[in-house]
Each structure stands twice: as structure tokens, then as C-alpha cells.
Design a protein around this nucleic acid. Structure first.
Lengths: 221, 221
DNA sequence: CTAATAGTGTCTCTGAGACACTATTTG
DNA sequence: CAAATAGTGTCTCAGAGACACTATTAG
């Protein structure tokens, strides 16, 4: 870029940070991980270190701030309002991540969501980041069956449907839901013992399976 | 973010740049605007100035490098390989934009695309940016009828279909195409004089119209 | 008239969505 | 047995896609 422009040292440079909206499901409610900050609860974040990639900084933020390791995230967008941080000029790349509750330490603090919004204010522009993160997760879950492994390696279709109902904040009829995801999962012979009623078969994700376009439209109805 | 971490001045900061893939259509071929650079042809770009927003820097890059004004762009993603620019540590936010050929000065240099790839190499990681830009444009054109106004305020359905065939790099049957976009355009009474055959009616975009999910799937077939 | 292009009636087939039925467990 | 949940046969209706027909111009 910028061929022939001023050299790299001519201008003050911004600090570049990463923030990660880690989403999870607790008691049938979508939640986001928050950490304490001087300005109130905030998403875990970190400044980009020299030579570091954004993904590595995001990883570092999660490890040091929330004790979360080995998880995937996606770029949501750069938040670049020059006044978004009173401490100075700080750009922040927002990331989204999804992780099962069991992978989070018991000490992690969660804020519940209502649809795509948080139920309480967050610091900086982090509420907007969370909203974008939920949209991103919905898109990803519309293309594949639970790609972030919120459920374990195997699951019943009821568990899968309940998960999608939480993520999309709306109910789905069981038979239509089943037929939309049927080609992207494969039944193990095993069954789940739920207690009441006929045991449900356990399914696993079909590797490489992509949900049809219609499934994504169905989830959004 | 980053509450309680080191202060803002502890670390060296990266330079932050913007690059813009300006797409247009010339003689039924999708093209991207390039400018000369020491490393070969590159996308127009600029370094982010203090207090500036990324969108403003992108705007400035287009004005000063390519003489293009008043156009919209979208964030594609941050390219953050520490070694992507030999001059130093430079992050770049890639943007996509679409503009009719008539809005570009005659002096602007274009490189044709073949599908989502350039037909010749570009500097830095700009080829990847172009590919992402085309994907982004396809998504946006799948949600609305020519939202970037590549065609004028009115157009025939043949012109519209030809445009979509260029963008998606595939032919569309005329009747099915028509029915997919029919609810998102509205006929003016006027007709276009093409020369041969029955004159085609001129349509305009229906304000606020959104293409159905099925249309997007159809374009991708 | 023919040639050329625009636009549409209509058929078929797929598949989404809904209803209700069957299947398999516990108590 | 009844109750509860899992899974499916099947009907209906909407609509995508294709074919062919009609419509409107030029020459």
C-alpha cells in the first residue's frame, strides 16, 4: 500500500488492540465472558505486541485474562472511533468465539444476552462488539452443524435443536428442524438415556458437511 | 479493552494502513483499479493519520491516488502478517468498493479479473484482498439489486442480467433471473431503444427492496 | 413477411412445513 | 396399561427452473 507516501515514521501510530467476545450457553441462555476493568465490565482484550498477529494477541488475551486456551475466533471488524478509548488513540479488532461452558473456569464472569444485546452495559464500545459477534456466530451456525462444538462429539437432535433455539432466540418445529440438519449429521448406533420416553439416538457431525442454503434461511425464518 | 495492562506507551506501535480494491466493469469484464508502486502494481492505499477513521483514510487514498471521490466501501478484513511489508510493521485494513467505469478518470489503470483472481500479480498481499473483495461484492449484490449503482438509475433487465453474469462469472437463464429480481425492481413506463427487436422496458431499483434468500442461492447456483 | 429481442403463461418437480401417526422407553 | 419423548410417512402448497408461446419492434 501507500507506495510513494511518506515514510513509516512520519506520523504518530495508533495503539492496536484486540477484544474477544467469547460466547457460551449457560442454562439455555446465551452469555458472553466479561472481565473487570476500570470502566466497568469489559470483554477480554490485549494490546498487539510487536511482530505479533492479531489472532495471537487474541489468544494471549484469553489466556491471561480469562484462563481460556485453545479456542478459535474470527475477526468481526475494526472499531476505529478515535475517541473510543479515553486513554488515547486505540484501534481494536473485535473477535468472536464460541466455547462450551465446561471449557471455562468456574471463576469466569458471564453476562447474559437477550437476543443480540447484553442485559447490562459493557465498557467502551464492547456492547456493539457483542452484537456483531452474535450475528457472526449465527452465520457460522447456519453453514454447519455446531461448528464450534458447543455440544460434545455426539448429541441428540433435541439437544441440537435447543442449542439453535438459544442462538437464534426463537423456537423451531422438531420435524422441520430435523430434516434441515439431517444430511449434515450421521447417527451413531448409540442412544441417549434421557429418563422419560423413548431414548434419542446420538448423532455426530458429518465431517465436512455444509448445511444447505435453505437451512440458514430457515433458522432466520 | 486491556484493562490493567501496561500503559499505552510501553510497546512499539504498528503503522496502520488502508487499501481499497475498487472494482468496476469494463467491456463485460470485472476489473480492479491499480496504481503504480515500487513493488509493482498495487491497490490504492494510505497510512492512517492521527485521529482519522479508517473510512476517512480509505477515502483519502482514493482521492489522492486515483482521483476517485464520493464512493462507498466496506471493510473486508485486517491483513496482519508482520512481514507483509518489507518496510516495516504495517497492518492494513482491506476495503472493497464498486464504482461504474464512467466515474473513473480515463487515466486510471485497471487489471482484469478472472473469476475472483487477478490476471496478473499485484504487490504485497493485494491479490488476496481482491479475492476477498469480489466475495464481498457478490454477497452484497445477492442481497439487493445493484446496490453500488454500477448501472444508472434505470436499466433493462438484460443489462442487469449481463452485469450479474460478469460479477458471478456464470450465465443465468433470462426467465428465472427475471423472476428472482422482479419484486426488487419497478418498471418505469419508458423503454430502451436497443436497435434490434422489441424495446426493453427500463426499470429502477425499488427503494429498500431486499432480494429473497433464494436469489442469493440462485446467483451462486 | 422475417429476424430479433422482450416478456409471460404454464408445466413439472422438488422440497419446506405441518399434521398425525408409529416406535420405544419408564413407571 | 398410560405417559413421555423420538422419529417418520405423507399431504399440501409454494416456488424454482424450463419450455414454449405471445408481444413488439426494425427492415
Amino acid at each position: 500500500m501507500t507506495a510513494g507516501e511518506s515514510s513509516l515514521t512520519d506520523y504518530p501510530r495508533p495503539s492496536v488492540a484486540v477484544d474477544v467476545a467469547v460466547l457460551t450457553v449457560r442454562r439455555d441462555a446465551l452469555c458472553v465472558v466479561v472481565v473487570p476493568s476500570p470502566r466497568g465490565r469489559a470483554l477480554p482484550g490485549a494490546f498487539l505486541h510487536p511482530g505479533e498477529r492479531l489472532a495471537d494477541a487474541a489468544h494471549r488475551a484469553l489466556t491471561t485474562k480469562a484462563g481460556i486456551t485453545e479456542l478459535e475466533f474470527h475477526q468481526i471488524g475494526m472499531f476505529d472511533d478515535p475517541n473510543r478509548d479515553e486513554r488515547g488513540w486505540v484501534l481494536s479488532m473485535a473477535h468472536s468465539s464460541v466455547v462450551p461452558l465446561t471449557r471455562l473456569g468456574a471463576a469466569v464472569d458471564l453476562v447474559e444476552l437477550n437476543g443480540t444485546a447484553t442485559t447490562e452495559p459493557l465498557a467502551f464500545d464492547h456492547e456493539a462488539m457483542v452484537t456483531s459477534a452474535v450475528e457472526d456466530v449465527r452465520q457460522r451456525y447456519g453453514r454447519a452443524v455446531d461448528p464450534s462444538l458447543l455440544l460434545g462429539p455426539t448429541f441428540t437432535l433435541l439437544e441440537l435443536r435447543r442449542l439453535y433455539e438459544v442462538l437464534y432466540d426463537k423456537p423451531f418445529p422438531k420435524d422441520t428442524f430435523r430434516r434441515h440438519v439431517a444430511d449434515a449429521v450421521v447417527g451413531t448406533g448409540a442412544t441417549s438415556t434421557t429418563g422419560g420416553g423413548r431414548p434419542a439416538e446420538l448423532y455426530r457431525r458429518q465431517s465436512g458437511a455444509v448445511l444447505p442454503e435453505a437451512a440458514s434461511a430457515f433458522f432466520r425464518s
